[in-house]
Amino acid sequence: MHDAGVRSEHAYLGAFVSIGGAFATWLTSTKAERAGLDRADRWGIFIGEWAPTFFALGIALSQYEQQEGVLGSK
């Protein structure tokens, strides 16, 4: 992934966007859909589960960057 241009900062950003997206999706679903709170919860959880994956990718990429000496270089 690093060779394709994905850096640890990108993965961390994706994690934080996922957290915000989970909240926004949950809030939107509670207001816009008549399916009830259960469905809104499922949407929020679905999006929220992406965050740990992005954090794990960020950690892995950060370790790679430290080993290769490219941490923080553009």
Score class of each variant (00 low, 15 high):
1 M>Q: 01
1 M>K: 03
2 H>R: 06
3 D>W: 01
3 D>E: 07
4 A>P: 00
4 A>T: 00
7 R>Y: 02
7 R>K: 10
8 S>F: 11
9 E>V: 09
9 E>L: 09
10 H>S: 12
11 A>G: 03
11 A>C: 14
11 A>E: 07
13 L>I: 10
14 G>N: 06
14 G>V: 02
15 A>P: 05
16 F>P: 03
16 F>G: 14
16 F>Y: 13
16 F>V: 15
16 F>I: 15
17 V>F: 11
18 S>K: 13
18 S>Q: 11
19 I>T: 09
19 I>Q: 06
20 G>Q: 05
21 G>V: 12
23 F>T: 15
24 A>Y: 13
24 A>L: 15
24 A>P: 14
25 T>M: 07
25 T>Q: 04
25 T>K: 04
28 T>C: 08
28 T>R: 06
29 S>P: 04
29 S>K: 03
29 S>C: 07
30 T>R: 10
30 T>N: 04
30 T>Y: 01
30 T>D: 02
31 K>L: 11
31 K>Y: 06
31 K>N: 11
32 A>V: 10
33 E>R: 03
33 E>S: 09
33 E>P: 01
34 R>W: 01
35 A>S: 12
35 A>M: 06
37 L>S: 03
37 L>A: 03
38 D>A: 08
39 R>G: 00
39 R>C: 01
40 A>T: 04
40 A>F: 06
40 A>R: 04
41 D>T: 13
41 D>H: 09
42 R>P: 00
43 W>Q: 05
43 W>I: 09
44 G>F: 13
44 G>K: 13
45 I>W: 05
46 F>P: 03
47 I>N: 08
48 G>F: 04
49 E>I: 08
50 W>M: 15
50 W>C: 13
51 A>Y: 07
51 A>H: 10
52 P>N: 13
52 P>T: 11
53 T>G: 12
55 F>S: 07
55 F>Q: 11
57 L>W: 08
57 L>H: 04
58 G>L: 08
58 G>P: 03
59 I>F: 15
59 I>Y: 15
59 I>L: 15
62 S>T: 13
62 S>V: 05
63 Q>A: 11
63 Q>R: 10
64 Y>V: 12
64 Y>G: 06
64 Y>W: 14
64 Y>R: 14
65 E>S: 11
65 E>H: 10
65 E>T: 07
66 Q>I: 12
66 Q>M: 11
66 Q>S: 07
68 E>A: 13
69 G>W: 00
69 G>Q: 01
70 V>W: 00
70 V>S: 03
70 V>K: 02
71 L>Y: 08
71 L>G: 01
71 L>S: 10
71 L>P: 00
73 S>N: 03
73 S>E: 05
73 S>C: 01
74 K>R: 08
74 K>M: 04
74 K>C: 01
